[in-house]
Amino acid sequence: MLDLKGRKGKWNISVLILLGILYLVIHCMAASRILLPYHIQVLGLVCINIILVVSLNLINGFLGQLAIGHAGFLAIGAYLSAALTVFYGFPFLLAILISGIAAGLVGILIGVPALRLTGDYLAIATLGFGEIIRVIILNIPAVGGPRGFSGIPRLTNFGLTYLLAIITVFVVKNFIDSAHGRAVVSIREDEIAADSLGVNTTYYKVAAFAIGAFFAGTAGALFSHYMQYISPAPSQIGFLRSIEILIMVVLGGLGSLTGSVITAFALTLLPELLRGFAEYRMVIYPILLILMMLFRPSGLMAGNELSFEFLEKLFKRKPKSNAKGVSPGGAN
């Protein structure tokens, strides 16, 4: 029989080693001034975006529910963690954890009613929840109200964002490859069939939503302690931010973690690299979004993950490049 055991475990460890080496390389490049502090700063933002995109992909791509209020959870994490460290002197790691848990709890609170809705309704309801969170923050003078929360200590560094991004990807990946993750995917594929097989669909919808919210909360904590300031503007914690994360998820591919990482990386760097790009990106992104849905709805990676098996298949297929219609199959 094929791939009964062993392979997955080895895969995890070898990837971890590679990621460790990558970190050392970045570290050395920074130490020798090949990468300037500005570059490292941007790489940190890439990692924060990876957390956001991967966690939203769990909800959009794997659970298949179009929730578009992700920035609301980011807002909870950003503000709560800042309040904890600034006003109450909490250690930062604890503040991150609490922020994640708080965002996760709010996710459950929102998820229980909202996830009874389907498709369009869920989209609008989550957008609405996100905006309500923002409006509430606007009305709390202690955290700066409309002026924003400034004077947050810089407790986030690149290493921490890197570590948390890795943890997020691994947790989501391992979750998806478990019985519980398969239950989540089955809801996307056919909720009624999943129900008939004994999958408690409400439970798994809320669970996936809460896990996504948890990581968005931790990303928020990292973000506010990275920028040392958090503004309640729509582009920071409102629907514009939510849509931006959604764009990264969709362009990378609903249900592809590799795609999420690639787009989080590319779409965070592009506006920094190309000066004119920032101005036109909000024209280019939506066009890509529409084209993607029309011609390649499965996204860049088409639900595939970059793995040894995938690479093997890719190269094995190459000699017979004329063979059309070979279905990639669901080998995961």
Partner: peptide
């Protein structure tokens, strides 16, 4: 189901794995 409700985009094996839930 009368109108077959498989998880169409998942492999045959994954369809069964979900039922083992």
């Amino acid at each position: 189901f009368q109108n077959i409700r498989l998880f169409k985009d998942l492999s045959v094996l994954d369809n069964l794995k979900i039922a083992y839930h």
